[in-house]
Amino acid sequence: MKKLFILTLFTTVIFTQTTVNPDISVIGDLIINQDGEISSSGVEIAIQGYVNPFARADVFLHKHADHNAIHLEEAVISFERGLPLNMGLRAGKFRPDIGKINKEHAHTLFFIEAPTSMKNILGDEMWGTFGVEPNWLFPLPWYAKLSVGYFTKAMGTACNHEVEEAEEDSHEDHTEKTTAMSARLSHFVDLNDVTHLEIGSGYYRDIENHELPHLHHVAELDFKIKWRPDTYRSFTWQGEIFRKSPIENPENESKIAGYTWMNYQFNKRWNVGVVADFSTDIDGEEFKSYGAFAGFSPAEESSVFRLVLSQEQHGDETHFGVKGQIIWALGPHKPHQF
């Protein structure tokens, strides 16, 4: 990780000597809960730019607010316009195209943190892994995309930064430990000039996973509908549902998890919404959560204040929580939600 950090700094220095610097952005936050505890999800550094006329590269580094070193969240090259047959390609470390929320960075979420049910399926920091993911646009009048990927880490396991740090410190070769594949088919349709619908379905499968007793597979369905009558007003409703089960003995340990949220942006600066999620099994117990949120962006999304009220029910335990967040951004990568 230290080598990576030095390499990044060195690369940045080289870039600054040219006239085609990449965009460099930093996003930070501060979170306070109902007990007055102050924390932070850390600082994200984004370095983004074009590699050549056909491909761009995006590097996201994350320094968590803990003792661990800088964590490589994503480092990916994306070929968009250079390939034949309406094909695109992502290669490197990135968040695979499965579901909606897996690709959304936490600072774009209206409700501060990803739903617990999704963390339980995808991993604490969502599913990010090294791999390669070609995708195709179908020759249809509407936007229909198929992505298929081959990856070196399993979904939901060994994908948070503390585990990765531990792996790196142990100097063991973990590259053959797990392999996985995923596929997603998504459609995007304009219902009218101001309303659009996106629906998707995905499938994930462990190919090799020596960390768990069973290989798993996951199926998902997702949707997002947005009504945007003008620039500053919009209503968005998004949801997805995952079913994770062992490939053998699917009756055992099979679980279903999902979430949905609705957000109403009623002027340039204010938004309000609700969020709910559930899982049939988190640590052997059923989980449900409901919440309401509000956001205020005083100046061009470069700083955002968020407030979330939530009630979680995990087995017999009920927990009520309040969280406030201030989030700020330097540079073009901002905490906006599209």
Binding site: P141, W142, Y143, K145, F188, V189, D190, D193, H196, E198, R228, D230, T231, Y232, F338
Partner: peptide, 18 residues
């Protein structure tokens, strides 16, 4: 962009890509 839209803020939609 539509005429009644702020051209600074246009949401990038896949249908525009099409």
């Amino acid at each position: 962009a539509r005429g009644n839209q702020d051209p600074h803020y246009v949401e990038v939609l896949p249908s525009y890509m099409m």
